[in-house]
Design a protein around this nucleic acid. Structure first.
Lengths: 122, 122
DNA sequence: CAGGATCCGGGTAGATACTG
DNA sequence: CAGTATCTACCCGGATCCTG
């Protein structure tokens, strides 16, 4: 690993690793990004339907923080009833391949890890 | 994205995405893996020195769960004072490239994201 | 040295109700 | 429809103390 990263192990505030982890670490961001990548354009309630285990509140919070980080774009139409559409930004799209490679690893190793975990308990 | 993943959005328990995310999502696992990759063999207190912001407790917890998942190997020597060495397992090593690609993305985008976040607040 | 046990506080997620 | 507001409960993480 780079020297740069090594030195930053201790520097929690400005550590890019920590920073990106805090973004991924949260329960839903990654899943939302994958959904957006999957459907291109989507509305609030549609996301909620696709990830039905997320609460309305957490979906709102997640979308807001993703928007704040410039990973997704929120487009609001001045209509009644209101309509809001979410899409991936360029920055968000550039992140997708990395997430997907992780997901593929997860899929490939999921079963083995589950077995290890079960065996460990004994 | 694959159909398979799509269907699994709703299936929290058996979803590989969720599962791998829960492993990464925790505050320290990824950082510990990076350290292990960096040094090959390392003892408890050495990790603690490198990541000094982690508490003793969380380091122990993190190492245990990584071991349970078969991502690291714990080797204990029957000596006094006790000595325990940690190394990456093959499975753990196979994960490293994926993490690193994510870290690189984080480094490349860290500054811009920080700016976006600051601008959003106004 | 490498942790285990315990206690404790704060933040975060969930449920529910409400609104422009 | 697309959220916000509030309240609560739980869990996580830190600090401290202890031990083989």
């Amino acid at each position: 690993m780079d020297e740069i990263l090594l030195k930053k192990y201790a520097d929690v505030e400005n550590c890019p690793v920590r920073n990106v982890l805090d973004r991924f670490g949260d329960k839903w961001s990654t899943l939302v990004l994958l959904v957006l990548d999957d459907v291109a354009v989507i509305r609030f309630n549609e996301i909620h339907k696709m990830i039905d285990s997320i609460s309305q509140k957490m979906l709102a919070v997640t979308l807001k923080s993703l928007e704040a980080d410039g990973l997704i774009i929120r487009k609001q139409y001045p209509e009644i009833p209101p309509r809001v559409e979410y899409t991936l930004s360029e920055r968000g799209a550039s992140l997708i391949p990395h997430i997907k490679s992780l997901v593929q690893w997860a899929n490939a190793n999921f079963e083995d890890i589950t077995k290890s975990r079960a065996a460990y308990k004994k």
